[in-house]
Computed example of a mutant assay.
Amino acid sequence: MTRTRTRAVRPTAALPLRTALVLSTVVFLSACTSSAEIEADQRAEGAAEAGATEAVLGVDTSPEQTGRVHTDEDPDAATLVPAAIAEDGRLTVGVAGAGEPPLGFLADDNATVVGSEVDIASLVAESLGLQLDVVNVSWEQWPLGVQSGDLEAVFSNVGVNSERLQLFDFATYREGVMAFSARPDSGLSIDEPADIAGLTIAVSSGTNQERILLDWNAQNEAAGLETAQLEYYANAADTLLALQSGRIDTYIGPNPNAVYQQSVGDIEIVGTVNAGWPNTTYVAATSLKGNGLVDAFEAALQHVFEDGTYARTLERWGLPDEAVDEPVVNPAVGS
């Protein structure tokens, strides 16, 4: 009989030059230390209006994470772990902890990284019989961290694209979804390019969501429709203030962040689009190309898909709509 193994997730020191920037390849909204009080006030007001301050997605902000879902070791998956890692018994994973729930954020001790991405990494490590060491990284750090060997993998809302496939291996575990967020009384509904005609939309430069908006604007212009005006913001507090003051009509960013912000009353999700539009793109466990970990990750993910702990973890963080049916190694991406 397979023995259930429960391990503590141990935070380790951040890599050098850690910054508190974006969470992922497609991340737009992340917390900013200088504006944390503003965001906290806005969340408190929104939750008070909803009358459910303590019921925000049931988010556990403790460093102990007693509500984390656990699985047991899968011996077949464990045999696929590269020898050096198996001998060490540890899996060092980078997760960006500079944001807000549900993806990756700092617990109440302001040191331990917790969130949905840590929970998925924890399931994978447990399936492989390894102890998980979580390293708090910024988005800019993870590629170099993996290539240098400081990180054995990254679980941090990393989307699969053609450029990354040249350097890294991927095992998918979520769809990459972008959400349009607006004031709760906006009356907006965004499903296609025509729906953004004439709107003022906040977006982060150099992201998948900016590409989507530029493509939609091109379609609208060709169809004789008014284009959307794009405004660029660097952090969540400034964007929310712009939305509440009417300077923008909507903003587009990662769906997980929008799910949380909607739950606390800051915004309403008025539409979603896949990050790879018009194709489908996925979020994946990321490791160095050819180092052998991806096969172990695929097997470990398949194990937690089948035993139900994957679905329970997504439910815990309000992300069941991003679930996939099975892990896929290095999925094909659109041109």
Rank of each mutant, 00 (worst) to 15 (best):
N279K: 14
A222W: 09
V146M: 10
N255I: 02
G265V: 05
G246M: 11
V22D: 05
G99P: 00
A194D: 12
E37L: 10
L15Q: 05
A44L: 15
L243H: 08
V270H: 07
N220G: 10
G145D: 11
G58M: 00
F297M: 06
A182L: 11
A311I: 03
E87A: 15
G97N: 08
V270N: 07
S156D: 12
T2P: 12
A285S: 09
G265L: 04
N279H: 15
E226N: 08
I196D: 04
I196W: 02
R211H: 13
V160K: 09
I85D: 02
I85P: 02
N257I: 05
L17W: 09
F170E: 02
G51F: 10
G58Y: 03
G89P: 08
D88F: 02
N235K: 01
L213G: 08
L151R: 07
A182E: 10
V27A: 12
L15E: 04
A171F: 06
E126A: 12
N279L: 11
W317P: 01
E231N: 10
N291H: 14
G104F: 00
L132W: 10
V137L: 05
Q209Y: 11
T309I: 02
F28V: 13
V113C: 10
I196S: 02
G129Q: 04
D238Q: 15
R164C: 01
H303I: 08
Q262H: 11
R211D: 13
G292C: 07
E39R: 08
V259F: 00
V329E: 01
C32R: 11
G318K: 05
T309M: 03
V137H: 02
E306M: 04
L15S: 06
A121C: 12
T61Y: 13
E140H: 14
S116W: 01
G115L: 09
P193R: 06
A300R: 08
T309A: 04
T286P: 00
V283Q: 02
L214I: 14
L288T: 12
L130I: 08
Q219D: 10
L128P: 04
V135W: 00
G89H: 10
N235A: 05
E73K: 11
V95F: 01
A258T: 03
P193C: 09
I190V: 13
V154I: 14
E231G: 01
R312W: 01
L319N: 08
A47I: 05
R174G: 00
V294T: 14
D60C: 08
V56E: 09
T200R: 14
G97S: 06
I201W: 04
V9P: 02
E175C: 00
D108T: 15
G271L: 09
Q219M: 10
V81K: 07
A223N: 12
F170V: 02
E326V: 07
L57R: 15
V294G: 03
S127K: 01
G99T: 01
D74H: 11
W317S: 05
P331C: 07
L15D: 05
L241H: 04
A77E: 09
D108H: 12
D74F: 07
A237F: 04
W277R: 12
W139A: 04
T66K: 12
G176R: 05
Q147A: 15
E306N: 14
Y251M: 06
L15A: 08
Y173N: 07
S263K: 06
T250R: 04
D41S: 10
P278T: 07
